[in-house]
């Protein structure tokens, strides 16, 4: 039974991590319909920026964190401005390939600088976060993941519901020409959505780094795991991304714990194919009805 609970806890925290990663992905897809393969790269950049600032430059943690967020926010702007904007209105494959190309550029650059080694952050989590519950130990990093995940989900909820920029974003996602006609600055919305997505990606990269330590290959591979999550939840649904993340996280840890560790890596993709065959628009996705 203890084993079972341990698996549930690990699965949930992994799920929250996936949900955080998926959040930034959904953000971009929702506002500009771009399938962002570079998401893992953005996560890795955030994670390594934080590493450099906190462990190498020895800045205080809060300052390092703030600077990382600012850095990735501006990186998102830059990527949108120089790479994505020339392609507005181009074919899907070109946009997809552009993000793939970006992904490999980022990955190659990071591998070039940091190599394939595993790094870990200085230990900064207060020990009060660790608690015992019966025989089960829940370590501080998992609690921190939950807390950070919840804070960000709350912030996003409020942002989309009440802030003017959030409402612009939703309007662009809903109907781009209509939003444009009503005076929404669509290009600014695209840029802002990339910037926010890069920020969230950096967050999830840091959280991943706190849990497992960071390694260029590992962080960037998580970026591909985002696909099963968002397909399960529905490509354009934030709530779906969270639920999908938790389901995929649990599925992965349960397969790893009870069936086989080798299967653990592919089970999300097997689930992905099944979901696509049965319910391609996911749990909460917008169903586009089109008869051919």
């Amino acid at each position: 039974m203890e084993f079972f609970f341990q698996i549930v806890i690990t699965g949930l925290s992994l799920g929250f991590l996936y949900a955080l990663a998926a959040l930034g992905f959904v953000m971009i897809f929702k506002s500009s319909s771009v399938l962002n393969f570079a998401h893992g790269g953005l996560m890795a950049i955030g994670a390594f920026l934080f590493l450099v600032l906190s462990a190498w430059a020895r800045l205080p943690i809060w300052l390092a964190f703030l600077l990382t967020l600012i850095g990735s926010f501006s990186l998102g702007f830059i990527i949108e401005r120089f790479f994505l904007r020339p392609l507005i209105g181009e074919a899907l494959i070109e946009v997809i390939m552009l993000t793939l190309g970006l992904f490999y550029m980022i990955k190659g650059l990071l591998l070039f600088i940091f190599g394939g080694d595993l790094y870990s952050y200085p230990d900064f989590l207060p020990p009060v976060l660790t608690f015992h519950w019966g025989g089960i130990e829940v370590t501080g990093v998992y609690v921190a993941t939950f807390i950070i995940g919840l804070i960000f989900l709350g912030l996003f909820g409020f942002f989309f519901k009440y802030s003017s920029q959030g409402i612009y974003m939703r309007s662009v996602a809903d109907n781009q020409p209509a939003a444009m006609a009503l005076g929404v600055h669509v290009r600014r919305v695209f840029a802002l959505s990339w910037a926010i997505a890069a920020l969230v990606a950096a967050m999830s990269g840091i959280v991943l780094g706190i849990i497992n330590g960071i390694n260029v290959h590992e962080v960037s591979d998580i970026g591909l795991k985002v696909f099963p999550v968002v397909i399960l939840g529905g490509l354009d649904s934030i709530g779906g991304a969270v639920l999908g993340g938790i389901i995929i996280g649990l599925l992965e840890t349960f397969t790893g714990g009870y069936i086989s560790t080798g299967l653990r890596e592919v089970i999300p993709y097997i689930a992905l194919i099944i979901i696509l065959l049965i319910k391609p628009y996911g749990l909460f996705g917008l169903v586009e009805i089109e008869r051919v």
Binding site: L87, M97, L102, F103, Y104, I106, K107, G108
Partner: peptide, 16 residues
Amino acid sequence: PLREFVYGLAIVLFII
């Protein structure tokens, strides 16, 4: 890493 970077760059430049 060099190959990954250069391939990525080539793809991006050609698409743009």
